[in-house]
Amino acid sequence: MDVMYEEEYNQIQEVVDRLHRDSNAYAVLLIDKNGQEIAAAGEIENIDTTSLSSLTAGNVAATGGIAKLMSEREFSTQFHEGERTNVHISIVASRVILVVLFDERSSLGLVRLRVKKAGNEVGQIFDSMMQKLEQPSQPSIFAEITDDDIDNLFND
């Protein structure tokens, strides 16, 4: 089970915000490999980030499948060039995906440079988070959920 606590979440959000600013991107998204959005920054009001996350994760998974066929560990970056929007996708620390959406206000070179730095920072945060999760503690929220809670979800 993946768990995210406030402290790490804030650190990650800070990195994503900074990457958005420094790369002149119009939006930045951090998602996990299963397609769940972790953090976002920039002009995301008009973007369906849930769909974008799921499709990107599917895309990365399919590309990973191709890598395996080629006996590569992974293809760590992908770049999609559109008429107005470009998408830079990179795998960070082998476990999360950084998506940068940019237009003519930025460039691929700048994005690549900034993504590299942000990727390292995100990797460090996840490393320390994993160490924290290995320590026994934290009671699970799942322990408290009852069948009635779930019936209520479906009755609304």
Partner: peptide, 28 residues
């Protein structure tokens, strides 16, 4: 609900996956 995504062939056979996000409410 969010948007339902279907990655299907022209004959509507699923090619990669269908995806439907649901947020049904709060628990605890």
């Amino acid at each position: 609900k969010g948007k339902m995504i279907s990655l299907a062939t022209e004959t509507e056979r699923t090619l990669f996956f269908d995806f439907l996000p649901l947020s049904l409410g709060e628990i605890r």
